[in-house]
Simulated assay, not measured.
Amino acid sequence: MKTTSTTTEILMTIPWLIAIVYVTSIWPELPATMPSHYDLSGTVNGWSPKVELAWLSLGMGVFLYLLFRFLPKIDPKGRLQSANFQKLRFVMMLFLAALQASLFYLAVHQSTSQALLGPELALVSLMLAGIGNYITTVKPNWFIGIRTPWTLSSENVWRRTHQLGGRWMVAGGLLAALLAIVVPAPYTVGVVVGIILTASFIPIVYSYIYYRQEKARQFS
């Protein structure tokens, strides 16, 4: 995938266009007020007008597209001009569009919303795995990646942290996606969130430990 091309930019918008077409096709079936928030047991505890959610979804899609489209241009290090960054963009746009569409799907199938929350969380988990698959190749920059004081202070710490973090994100994302389907509804959110937080926290701790080790070797 080229770093800049009309074809690439069209490809980035396709997931959101499909989501818009889908929401338009089920619009008459949607209730006037839709679930917009769930508690840790998967029970709906927040509602919003469907028009408001539709505009929010559209606005989020436009914002994310523009954000990831122009980040490489404003990155002071100029490290985001790569084919792998474009793949990372597409993975994020694809899964976020699917998540937005799933909210409207859940609204149409309110009687089975708890059963369908698992697949929605599985999408979030698969997005984490997809990001982890490409994040290992992201070079040091100010916007994308595991940006801690220690990774930003050393390119070697950045590289080692992202190699480890990418593996944890892939493994954690795939495990969370599986458990999101098989774990009973009252525990699904807690289990998935716990795995995602663990997979995200371990690389942060590792970046500090490896930074300290690197400094110790320099002074030894």
Rank of each mutant, 00 (worst) to 15 (best):
G78R: 15
G78L: 15
R79F: 08
L80P: 00
L80E: 05
L80I: 03
L80V: 03
Q81E: 14
S82L: 11
S82P: 13
A83Q: 15
A83N: 15
A83L: 13
N84V: 12
N84G: 12
F85R: 07
Q86N: 15
Q86W: 09
K87W: 07
K87C: 08
K87I: 07
R89Q: 05
F90T: 06
F90M: 09
V91W: 00
V91Y: 02
M92F: 15
M93V: 13
L94G: 12
L94D: 14
F95E: 12
F95N: 03
L96Q: 03
L96R: 04
A97T: 12
A98I: 10
A98R: 04
A98N: 09
A98Q: 09
L99S: 12
L99K: 05
Q100N: 11
Q100A: 12
A101N: 10
L103W: 09
F104I: 02
F104Q: 00
F104M: 02
Y105Q: 02
Y105L: 14
Y105I: 04
A107D: 00
A107T: 01
V108F: 00
V108G: 01
V108L: 01
H109L: 01
Q110A: 15
T112G: 11
T112V: 11
S113Q: 08
S113T: 09
Q114S: 12
A115E: 13
L116G: 10
L117N: 08
L117G: 04
L117C: 05
G118A: 13
P119S: 11
E120H: 11
L121D: 02
L121E: 00
A122K: 10
A122T: 08
L123A: 07
L123V: 10
V124Y: 00
S125F: 06
S125D: 03
L128I: 15
L128R: 01
A129K: 11
G130S: 07
G130D: 01
I131H: 00
I131E: 08
G132Y: 07
G132D: 08
N133H: 14
N133G: 00
Y134G: 11
Y134N: 14
Y134Q: 14
I135F: 00
I135A: 02
T136H: 04
T136R: 10
T136E: 03
T136G: 03
T136A: 04
T137R: 14
T137Y: 12
V138T: 09
K139I: 04
P140A: 14
N141W: 12
N141C: 03
N141H: 11
W142N: 09
W142L: 13
W142A: 13
W142I: 06
F143Y: 07
I144S: 02
I144V: 09
G145D: 03
G145S: 02
G145A: 04
G145N: 04
I146H: 07
T148V: 13
T148I: 13
T148E: 05
T148R: 12
W150D: 06
W150Y: 05
T151N: 03
T151M: 01
L152H: 10
L152W: 11
L152A: 04
L152P: 08
S153W: 01
S153H: 04
S153C: 05
S153M: 08
S154Y: 06
E155W: 02
W158C: 06
W158S: 06
R159Q: 09
R160A: 13
T161V: 06
T161L: 07
